[in-house]
Amino acid sequence: MKDRIKEVLKKVFELDEVHDNISQTTCAKWDSLNHLNLIVELEDEFNVSFEPEDIAEMKSLDIIEAKLNRLV
């Protein structure tokens, strides 16, 4: 699961390497527009649909993983 999320992060933010502690505050490319792109890609990759409240919170790899774990 974590690795798949990392692949999506890499693709959306165009990164070569993603650390486990990546979050909106540590990643310069994680702006609001790319956050939207990230949600679209995650929904696609895991075939899920997030609620807006979750989307607003999903601003680090850990939280994304936790939210996804509840859905899949």
Binding site: L36, N37, V40, E43, D44, P52, I55, A56
Partner: peptide, 11 residues
């Protein structure tokens, strides 16, 4: 549409 002002589906 409501969270990001997108009337066209980003998918």
């Amino acid at each position: 549409y409501y969270i990001s002002q997108m009337p066209l589906n980003p998918k």
